[in-house]
């Protein structure tokens, strides 16, 4: 029996070899190439090693700093808002007595089916200076004159954050909702008998029970935000000035819009790699300690 098992474990390679090779070829190999490239400089196909020059350049590059600032701003402001909103909506929808919850769930989830490009362009038209949103706000007397959403550095960032929140809140909500359905209802009943309010139950039962899934969504949202590209390119093109430009967009510009500089672009891309790794470790640590 033992022998047969060994034989079959050897056979498994016919299933895993090709897919594994493809991931090594299209993820690990480019990752390694990128690392080598980050120590090189040049144009066209001629590249030579320049040591850590590119990395030194990073620290005195105002565009890079701006892109990192913007990306971190989106991360710090948008991710917590979205996760909290998703959590609250999931909590409300998890009430078995609530009417119309099928409708609410579908409506709030629907943004997830749109392509990033499509919804970004939709938002661009909604936030036009004479557009529908300004018109509505004016008619409700919320504002006295139209806001130039996409021309103002601060408002442009607000639009980006609003757009991402619109697209992804329902996605996170679905994760929370499915996790909440696994919580034993008798825990809530016991808490009610002990006199704990609904709000209290949310923070003392729901949130702690969902900690692993909140951690998971925090990590994937962080990962996604650090790689933000489609929305910014299609809503603001990174403008006004470079007020909304993200790191991914800067890498794209360095490689394909400005005079191509693949070496330096690779260096910038490793900044994302480091940020993704550091933040994931940080979040895992944070999530682990509190459990």
């Amino acid at each position: 029996m033992e022998r047969k098992w060994n034989k079959s474990s050897l056979m498994g390679w016919q299933f895993v070899a090709l897919p594994s090779a493809l991931i090594l070829l299209f993820s690990f190999y480019p990752m390694f190439q990128s690392l080598l490239l980050s120590f090189q400089s040049g144009k066209g196909t001629v590249y030579h090693y320049v040591g850590i020059d590119n990395y030194i350049r990073l620290f005195s590059d105002p565009m890079f700093k701006q892109a990192v600032f913007n990306t971190l701003l989106y991360l710090i402001v948008q991710v917590p808002i979205m996760l909290l909103l998703g959590l609250v909506i999931a909590h409300l929808l998890n009430n078995p007595k609530l009417r119309f919850k099928g409708f609410y769930r579908t409506a709030i989830f629907l943004p997830c089916v749109t392509s990033l490009v499509s919804y970004a362009v939709l938002f661009k038209s909604i936030f036009a200076v004479d557009g529908i949103l300004n018109k509505m706000l004016l008619s409700m007397h919320v504002i006295q004159e139209p806001i130039a959403w996409l021309m103002d550095p601060i408002w442009a960032r607000v639009v980006i954050i609003a757009a991402i929140t619109w697209r992804w809140t329902g996605y996170n909500m679905i994760f929370y909702l499915s996790a909440m359905q696994n919580i034993d209802p008798s825990i809530y009943e016991a808490a009610s008998i002990d006199g704990a309010s609904k709000t209290r139950q949310f923070f003392s039962i729901t949130v702690p029970m969902l900690k692993p899934i909140i951690l998971f969504t925090a990590i994937i949202s962080t990962n996604g935000t650090l790689q933000l590209f489609d929305e910014v390119v299609n809503i603001t093109k990174g403008g006004p000035g470079n007020a909304t430009m993200t790191i991914s967009q800067y890498i794209y510009n360095l490689s394909f819009v400005y005079t191509p500089n693949f070496g330096y672009a690779a260096t910038v891309s490793y900044a994302i790699v480091v940020m993704v790794a550091v933040l994931a470790l940080f979040q895992l640590k944070l999530g682990g300690e509190k459990r």
């Binding site: 299209f26 993820s27 690990f28 190999y29 480019p30 990752m31 990128s34 891309s269 790699v273 993704v276």
Partner: peptide
């Protein structure tokens, strides 16, 4: 292989392009 989930696409796109 699971490590590749953490690899940002921006970091592999230039070598992939080449």
């Amino acid at each position: 292989l699971m490590l590749s989930m953490m690899m940002p696409f921006a970091a592999v796109m230039i070598p992939l392009f080449r």
